[in-house]
């Protein structure tokens, strides 16, 4: 008496599941991932509910965290160090930079630690493992949406209006998300294999943040070094995020192209690498 079909099969058909050893690179099996999309949704929803239910300050915390970080940076780098921010108020300048950076770093961190955190699930039930870091990434992306609202309030307060570059926002977010998810997949898989990788990650991310134009603008970087900076995909993302939210100057095409290309590269290499090593997860956890 089956009224509803299963996840992998339409009603009445009998799928044949073959289990055999595999080796080397494997196909991504996107169809199976789609069939299990509810797992992704449920895991992401769980992460969000827990975050907002368990912390006493709930949503307020998600608002305060980037705002306080922005204020501290504004005082240290804007007020004391007097870093230039063009015609825009330094607080807005650094907040826009932080939004881009936090979107990336939040996803890498949360997706990166997700497999080890869900060890119990991985050893007890089968579903495409890639859904675990994807769910973690989705819940990190919600934080970005909250900070977008905060940004909206901030720019209205300062009377700054985003200009012609606003259309860049959705594609930039998509590029940042894709690149971060790809990096998160690499980190998650490496975390299972090498448990001390988790200790190195915060340090790497911090170095990376200062190598990206979060607290400073690209105009501070001399022409000689610009091509090197263009290799950092976060340069294009952050500059474009600023241009979109605070109006001009236009981001450099070279760094934008590099961001898109690297994000796509990291995402697909991450997916294939993850797929290659996921067969060993249950044993290693």
């Amino acid at each position: 008496m089956r009224s509803v079909g299963g996840p992998m099969v339409p009603e009445h058909s009998e799928p044949i599941i073959r289990i055999r050893p595999s080796s080397g690179w494997r196909a991504l099996r996107l169809g199976e991932i789609w069939a299990y999309r509810d797992v992704w949704l449920m895991l992401a929803a769980r992460d969000l509910k827990l975050r907002y239910r368990q912390t006493a300050l709930g949503v307020l915390w998600v608002v305060l965290q980037p705002l306080l970080a922005g204020l501290i940076f504004a005082v240290i780098f804007g007020h004391f160090a007097k870093l230039p921010s063009g015609e825009r108020p330094y607080l807005l300048f650094v907040f826009a930079g932080l939004m881009g950076w936090n979107l990336f770093a939040g996803i890498v961190q949360r997706a990166g630690g997700s497999l080890v955190a869900e060890a119990r699930l991985i050893t007890k039930v089968y579903f495409p493992r890639v859904l675990i870091p994807c769910a973690a990434a989705a819940s990190a992306a919600v934080d970005f949406c909250v900070s977008l609202v905060v940004m909206g309030v901030l720019i209205a307060w300062h009377g700054v209006w985003p200009g012609a570059w606003l259309w860049l926002l959705p594609p930039v977010v998509a590029v940042a998300f894709a690149g971060a998810l790809g990096a998160g997949l690499w980190v998650a898989a490496l975390n299972v294999r090498y448990r001390d990788f988790a200790y190195a990650l915060p340090f790497l991310l911090q170095v990376w943040m200062y190598a990206s134009p979060v607290v400073y603008g690209m105009e501070l970087v001399s022409e000689r070094w610009r091509p090197l900076f263009a290799l950092n995909p976060m340069v294009g993302v952050i500059e474009a995020m600023r241009a979109a939210l605070l109006g001009g100057p236009a981001p450099e095409p070279l760094s934008l192209i590099s961001s898109v290309a690297l994000a796509v590269l990291v995402l697909f290499s991450g997916l294939f690498f993850f797929r290659r090593v996921e067969r060993g997860f249950a044993e290693a956890l």
């Binding site: 009998e14 799928p15 044949i16 073959r18 289990i19 769980r46 827990l50 368990q54 039930v125």
Partner: peptide, 30 residues
């Protein structure tokens, strides 16, 4: 399908449900 075999193969007809633990994925706060 939690682990891959090292050799040999298995063929199963139909959907497979595995219950290796009671309350898979249960979280106390939910």
């Amino acid at each position: 399908r939690i682990m891959e075999p090292t050799e040999g193969e298995a063929e199963m007809r139909g959907r497979v449900g595995a219950l290796l633990e009671v309350g898979t994925g249960f979280h106390p706060e939910l």
